[in-house]
């Protein structure tokens, strides 16, 4: 009986851990191939939260980039500005897309230029401490 109780607690905890990183759908991920002289790159992806609890993305890491920042392009009265986002919340049952002209990942171009067809390893970091590893293609739109 006691064993059963511990087992269910363990399963519940494990499910909680698996919840964010593993049950989130990630698709349409890509990094834009940039001109040779471009110092910054942009990356895009969609996140779909099929659970009944909100999921919070707090950062992105990659061994290839010095840093990856979450930005949102906002255009107000014709003026475009990039706003840094500390976190991006994907509400229960919702889909959030990083896409051109809106949310995007910004990272410095590595020394060796990325070309369409290259693949980049990224880790998505969530507020609950879980990570999701994805491999993202470089594309020329």
């Amino acid at each position: 009986m006691k064993h059963k109780w511990i087992l269910s607690l363990f399963l519940a905890l494990w499910a909680g851990v698996a919840n964010t990183a593993d049950t989130l759908e990630v698709d349409n991920a890509w990094i834009r191939e940039a001109p040779p002289a471009a110092p910054m790159l942009a990356g895009y992806l969609c996140l779909e939260n099929r659970t009944d609890t909100p999921v919070t993305l707090v950062g992105v890491e990659s061994p290839l980039f010095e840093f990856v920042m979450m930005h949102r392009t906002e255009t107000v009265n014709g003026m475009a500005r990039m706003l840094h986002q500390d976190k991006v919340v994907i509400a229960a049952g919702k889909r959030v897309c990083f896409e051109p002209g809106g949310l995007h990942l910004m990272m410095p171009a590595p020394e060796k230029r990325l070309l369409a067809g290259d693949r980049v390893e990224l880790d998505l970091l969530f507020e609950d401490g879980t990570k999701r590893h994805i491999t993202v293609p470089v594309k020329a739109p």
């Binding site: 910054m40 942009a42 990039m82 051109p100």
Partner: peptide, 13 residues
């Protein structure tokens, strides 16, 4: 400007 990774490549594209 060239450090602009989103809006500028979108416009030039």
């Amino acid at each position: 400007y060239t450090h602009c990774p989103d809006v500028c490549p979108n416009a030039l594209g």
